[in-house]
């Protein structure tokens, strides 16, 4: 048992989140996957804080949480307004920005 275990777990969680972003079409689920990726990074930060013996990493994780909260608020509002105009929460339906 070592800190490497935490880090590898965080890497796997991050990857699962990333794959979720790729394969899910519901915008809200995609958002959750992003949250999962952020959380896995937080785990990494906390682990390294412990490894290095400073709380700077924890403060970084704290800031990540704050930013994630702001991001969730704005992102969900965007999803709401898209849903209101297009009657759909699918990320594939919002594909106007193309060739």
């Amino acid at each position: 048992m070592s800190l490497t275990h935490y880090l590898v777990l965080a890497a796997i969680l991050f990857t699962i989140g990333a794959v979720g972003v790729l394969v899910r079409r519901n915008a809200i689920v995609v958002f959750m996957c992003v949250e999962l990726m952020l959380n896995s990074v937080n785990l990494t930060l906390v682990t390294f804080a412990r490894a290095n013996g400073t709380v700077d990493g924890q403060i970084m994780a704290f800031f990540v949480m704050v930013v994630a909260a702001a991001e969730v608020v704005v992102g969900l509002a965007i999803i709401m307004s898209i849903y209101r105009t297009r009657r759909s929460a699918s990320v594939d339906d919002a594909n106007l920005l193309k060739y």
Partner: peptide, 9 residues
């Protein structure tokens, strides 16, 4: 450039 955000991801 399909416009599908998942392709870009």
């Amino acid at each position: 450039q399909t416009g599908f955000v998942r392709s870009y991801a």
